[in-house]
Amino acid sequence: MDMRGETVLMLVFPATAQGTRHALRDVRGALTRAGLAPEMLSRVETVLAEVLNNVAEHACDARPAVPVRLTAELRGSALRVRAHDRGRPMPGGVPPAGALPKRDVPRDLLPEGGFGWFLIREQSDSLFYRRADGENTLELQFRPRVPG
């Protein structure tokens, strides 16, 4: 039942904005070579951009950049991605709910942030967070979506 997946990506890089940008280029390359459909690839890139930016901005601030370890495993048409870092744990030990910020407000109050967890939850198909032995692990699953 639990068939072994094929590891298609393993990356270690600094938790910084530039580190994230370079990692996403490598992710896109590796997953394209692995034959991932463009629709899923686009969601993976959107989700990982937010996940990795969060690690860079929140979990690993005020120290030299902490490494992030990223792996991706293909199981049939489903992709499992895991991000590991040794930065701070999620506040309260759980990932944020990811409600969309209000936009029916005067222009000078429009949201300039708060979209990240909404995008992570909307664009992935399941999500699991664990803090153990000083390490954060965020596991994300992606399955093909029928267009429309």
């Binding site: 951009a49 222009r107 429009l110």
Partner: peptide
């Protein structure tokens, strides 16, 4: 080709600093 939530927020910020 790609905008993340920081980029989206930056575009909103541009609209805001252009003023009413």
């Amino acid at each position: 080709a790609f905008v993340d939530s920081s980029g989206l927020g930056a575009i909103v910020a541009v609209m805001k600093f252009l003023g009413p």
